[in-house]
Design a binder for these strands. Structure first.
Length: 248
DNA sequence: TTTCGCTTACAGAATGTCCC
DNA sequence: GGGACATTCTGTAAGCGAAA
């Protein structure tokens, strides 16, 4: 087995979710390994090693699978969440110049925007009590964090016991959402709040798990820097990495 | 002669399209 | 699903004329 390739155990999990008819097309495992190689090393599609076949074919197949929801389905299938509490945060991925969105779309529609650090995409995530990814959302880099919290929670099949997030999420709208879901808000109040409400600081100390989740994903150069023009392709990269993170 | 500002051409990358 | 090629985008370098 070469570096970056799927282990036997990982392939057994991934294989049921792959597309393609038997007897046609190239080896699905070889293809998934090609995607992993690219995502983890950050090489351009056209620089894909020859052992993976024509780069163009692999690139297009990756997009087809992304549009068919294969990578997202895999991400959802591997989850065995602990909803005792969830942690929410965001990170930014600087966009490579080649990631400028396709002409038929707009930068905002492809989750691209200017922020500190330049042209970038913001990745919002909710992870379970053990620090495993549950749902991911992309927005342009300048987008605020707090409006995405309800979006992330709405994607969960059940309401968590508590939600842990940093001060950026201390808004009335967020607190209302959590109250409606009967989830404890473990969010420090902003310094400007007149009501400096208390929160469970022991649980808040657990917030590093979502930071570590991003850290693990960012070990892949293809996630730390966005090379994809479309949001769907970049989200597919994130889904694949988050799925493999569950198998670690 | 140098500097500035503008335009143009090109390179390099991901994605789209046609056809099989 | 695959092969070949086209399209579209940004950054950069080169070319050019005007002004200092």
């Amino acid at each position: 087995m070469r570096r970056h390739e799927l282990t036997e155990r990982e392939w057994k999990v991934v294989e049921p979710h792959t597309l393609g008819r038997l007897g046609t097309g190239r080896d699905n495992r070889l293809f998934v390994n090609a995607v992993l190689y690219r995502v983890r090393t950050g090489v351009a599609w056209r620089d894909l090693p020859e052992r993976f076949g024509p780069w163009n074919t692999a690139a297009r197949r990756f997009r087809r699978w992304a549009q068919a929801g294969v990578w997202e389905a895999l991400f959802q299938a591997v989850q065995e969440p602990d909803y005792a509490w969830v942690l929410i945060d965001s990170t930014t991925a600087k966009a490579h110049k080649a990631a400028a969105g396709p002409k038929k779309s707009t930068p905002a529609a492809e989750a691209l925007g200017r922020s500190r650090g330049g042209f970038c995409t913001k990745v919002h995530a909710v992870v379970d009590a053990l620090g495993n990814g549950l749902h991911l959302v992309l927005t342009p880099g300048q987008a605020a964090d707090s409006p995405q919290l309800p979006v992330l929670l709405a994607a969960l099949p059940e309401s968590p016991g508590a939600v842990v997030a940093d001060k950026a999420y201390d808004t009335n709208a967020v607190l209302d959402t959590l109250a409606q879901q009967q989830a404890e808000a473990v969010i420090p109040p902003k310094a400007t709040r007149l009501d400096q409400r208390g929160y469970d600081d022991n649980l808040y100390a657990d917030r590093n798990k979502v930071e570590r989740f991003f850290g693990r994903l960012k070990e892949a150069r293809g996630f730390a820097t966005r090379y994809e023009k479309t949001a769907s392709s970049f989200l597919a990269v994130a889904h694949l990495l988050a799925a493999l993170d569950w198998m670690r």
